[in-house]
Design a protein around this nucleic acid. Structure first.
Lengths: 188, 188
DNA sequence: TCCTTCTATGCAACTCGTTGCATAGACAAG
DNA sequence: CTTGTCTATGCAACGAGTTGCATAGAAGGA
């Protein structure tokens, strides 16, 4: 279970409430890890009762009070231990690949629309990443020497960019293949 | 839940028992979908009682009898319906990206070993895919015109190959970045 | 004024997925 | 002769993740 560790990293980067974490999981961290607010609140509570996190009630004006969590010594130790353990898996779940193979037993025109839709999603996401890269990592380029945290965030983002580019090229390959099949073998 | 649909596709490609499906999920289909035998047996039972699949008891010699499942009309209809629905998500879970960002708060040497290990895994997997491609998709190239199912399986495999290549290149980028950080900023 | 949206937290119920364990016959190696 | 591996199926328990719903004050627009 790495959700705990993702939360530890995020809170080390900047302390925050469950709500704020949920927002981060929709953005920067969400590029490579998804979580709903339910999961986050539940796990935060458990981590706090396990002594991994500290809480601080922060009263606010014009909006509800929030609980700001930060990483305690135990939490930092737990993260460090996890960083030194090997991890496995990256369990793959590619619905689209299932669909592509399934298209052999069905009308391929539905597949074409689906693939085009996915291509659009990945294309938009790529544009979003590139905009974020411009904004976050090329602004004060000559000014401050970028710190380690920034460099590491940047290389993760570059991974996202490479993934989207690769995916778009592959989806084009899929489209070309399906069209070729449709042209050369009009009957099912 | 697309496990049902992955099973339908696999059984359409070739009927088989739960055990055989589990083996396939370790290989070809496992390239883009993982499932344990527990999940498979449980889902097969449910799908059969829902009328999506038919069963046939096959006695065998020298080994236990097996239940060979095949797709019933209802199952085929369910698959067809799913193929015509849009799907979302591809929910991302990249433990390694969490670790990379976490390395900003820890000794990066552990990260280097981990990244090198992953690079090896992906490199092996790429070699495995390429061997599979040679074997399955370039053998009788000029002889028979490849059918739609084969072409679609091939394009899925090409996706896996592109993914591994991209990942290896990215891991090299990660390694270069971490080394650069270690060289330029020897103190934490 | 009412409706929606945003911040902020949480419960309850459910499904999905993993892990550990059990059975059981056949076969091969030590 | 015992141990281990392969085929083949399955139960029980747990943990992870999703969905629906609820509360509640503040702000802004129709």
């Amino acid at each position: 279970m790495a959700l705990e560790h993702a939360i530890l990293v995020s809170l080390l980067e900047k302390p925050g409430s469950g709500y704020e974490l949920a927002r981060r999981f929709e953005r920067s961290i969400g590029y490579f890890w998804t979580a709903t607010h339910q999961q986050i609140y539940r796990v935060l509570k458990r981590m706090e009762s396990d002594g991994l996190l500290g809480v601080r009630e922060v009263p606010q004006q014009g909006r509800p009070d929030k609980k700001e969590y930060s990483v305690a010594g135990l939490g930092r130790a737990a993260l460090s231990q996890w960083l030194h353990e090997p991890i496995e898996s990256e369990s793959v779940r590619h619905d689209l690949a299932v669909k592509i193979r399934g298209a052999a037993f069905d009308d391929p025109s539905a597949l074409i629309h689906e693939v085009e839709r996915h291509r659009q999603v990945h294309s938009d996401r790529l544009a979003h990443y590139l905009a974020g890269e411009l904004c976050d990592f090329t602004g004060p380029e000559a000014s401050a020497p970028p710190d380690a945290g920034q460099e590491l965030q940047h290389v993760v983002l570059r991974g996202g960019i490479a993934y989207e580019r690769m995916t778009i090229a592959w989806l084009d390959d899929v489209l070309a293949t399906v069209h070729r099949l449709g042209a050369s073998r009009p009957r099912t």
